[in-house]
Design a binder for these strands. Structure first.
Lengths: 341, 341
DNA sequence: CTGAAAGCGCTTACAG
DNA sequence: CTGAAAGCGCTTACAG
């Protein structure tokens, strides 16, 4: 009644072959007759043999696990990143261990250390704002912005912003309010800069940062967008969908019709952005591609590092650092009304 | 220049003690003089000694890692679950390996198998709709609804629904539309049933399911809520915040003022629910508590299982299966207007 | 109070 | 083409 999972030596004994032969058959490494290999694989299956990761990890020095460090879930984009990273990593034969860099500023370093302690082969990090990613001997892939030091791969946030701006210009908007959340965010700044790069001096452009307004009036306070509208601003371009949602509902509540009287745009194409009324014009990142490039780069770095040992791992670089974004035009953006207050 | 991370035997040699003593000092297990233990720990720190998980796992048969299986990210509640599970698990000394049960129906079983293959000590599952969680010898904690077979712990969705209904009744609403997404969801059904349980025959209550409407009119179609409003329905109670958002923006777009002319409620208290205009009345789950109970139960089961080996692990039950929810009243709900069409 | 030794399950040169 | 043996780093009885 020994139904517990067999190990390699039990499997080998059962088959009357050596343990090495069994191992070779399953890994397809050493040369052995195809028939024997076949027979071994079948029996392994049938006996429910599952190789021990621990044994393998101890022997090979590789855990087959990658770490993923994400900041607090505040940004609803992270689940999508996590999902894509998990999908690609699984496809490459890796598991994904998650860690959270929430709380204090040192949490990111702590999270990284914990992952290293658990023996991950490499780490993907979406850095917290205003932090430095420490150097380790464990390869690290960074997803932030093209300008971030040691950045591995990211969406082309600048170009995404530029696309929004061209769209608004084409619709005839001349007074445009850019709405950011936190000026210390690399991603948000790059998006804003991208927008500004495509807006001409003939247009009036202002930027507001929500954290600064909330610092004065409290969290969740009104952004007074109706007042901006009254001053002739007809386009409200936000750095992410949740802020666009906040803007859109605030304008709607004030009785301003979207898109007839004001245009609102977001960023990130979150699930609900296509389901609200009116559906939100936004910018979609190519997450599957970003995840693929990040994991590819990481896996390559892991293999390289096996050769040259010791020393901190050099920055991991992807084949392509910047992945294009796609403007998704929906009904929340429309032609500028006659821009009268 | 041997700066690479030392292992236990190098540490022991460096200290002139046996490898067993070093191990005992670090784990605090075997009895040894406090001074020696102290000295060993200090030197270990100073030499940057990091114990090998692989070695430990191989020896102890425990990986110190839990698996977390979540369905597709469609439900924006999952990130919060993931975050809390990760937090609690880390606190209990476990890492968290994520897996996704997206795609086809068998994906959930596949995800579980992969985690087992990676040697996790236990698994937390939020089951996909309409699937059976397979029995394994690996302990599994299920987070779904109190009625789900083998459910370990969950929010009290029924009572959450009841709280919403009492709130609406107290506000004087007599014609109430319940808005669900998918009738095959245990969670959504329980919430709807909870609402119905507290609505009297004196009230008119109807339920619509978004997937059914979309099956006819296409994804993202209008829900025609203005028509319901015209028929005198003044309260729109949704099974989750994204659906409430859809309802709220649809009503606002149709020129119906919230909450003056219609009340909208959601479920789950997602981040943005407090930032929209008007902010959303919703129901908040006690995720930290749910995560704590789930992990506690799992860890207990893992320890128990070490005693009795083999055989599928019995269902993991938490000290408390059902965690209360909290109604969060915000401005999207208000007194019923004179309910004239 | 401390140490020598076995063994967890695997892979990988190496010998035959 | 196949097998015997070493060893990855740890913990845990056990002996002293």
């Amino acid at each position: 009644m020994k139904a517990a999972r067999p190990n390699l030596s039990e499997l080998a004994r059962h088959l009357g072959v050596s343990i090495a032969t069994a191992s070779n058959a399953l890994s397809g490494k050493g040369r052995l007759s195809p028939e024997l290999a076949q027979r071994i694989r079948e029996t392994a299956n049938q006996m429910g043999y599952v190789p021990s990761q621990a044994g393998r990890a101890l022997r090979t020095g590789r855990s087959g696990v990658l770490g993923l460090v994400l900041p607090d879930i505040g940004n609803p984009l992270y689940p999508e990143i996590a999902q894509e990273i998990e999908r690609v990593a699984t496809g490459a034969g890796y598991g994904v261990l998650i860690a959270n860099s929430r709380d204090d500023i040192s949490a990111q370093d702590k999270a990284i250390f914990q992952l290293v302690e658990r023996g991950v082969d490499g780490i993907v990090i979406v850095p917290r704002r205003g932090t430095k990613v420490p150097e380790t001997r464990c390869p690290i892939a960074i997803i932030d912005t093209p300008k971030t030091p040691r950045n591995t791969v990211s969406g082309d946030h600048f170009d995404g912003g530029a696309q929004v701006a061209r769209h608004l210009t084409a619709l005839g908007h001349t007074r445009i309010l850019l709405i950011g959340d936190d000026p210390s965010s690399n991603v948000q700044n790059t998006r804003i800069n991208g927008m500004r790069s495509e807006l001409s001096d003939a247009q009036t452009v202002e930027t507001i940062w929500i954290v600064e307004i909330e610092a004065k009036h409290g969290k969740g306070c009104a952004l007074d967008l109706a007042a901006w509208r009254a001053r002739g601003f007809t386009a409200f371009a936000c750095v992410s969908d949740p802020h666009a949602l906040r803007a859109l509902t605030e304008l709607q509540s004030a009785g301003i019709a979207i898109p007839a009287e004001a245009t609102v745009t977001g960023f990130d194409n979150l699930q609900w952005s296509s389901f609200i009324s009116p559906p939100l014009t936004t910018v979609k990142m190519n997450m599957p591609e970003i995840a693929r490039l990040a994991i590819d780069a990481l896996v390559t770095a892991i293999k390289d590092r096996d050769a040259s040992d010791d020393t901190p791992s050099p920055p991991v670089t992807a084949r392509k650092a910047s992945v294009p974004m796609e403007l998704v035009i929906r009904r929340s953006s429309g032609p500028a009304p006659e821009a009268q207050p």
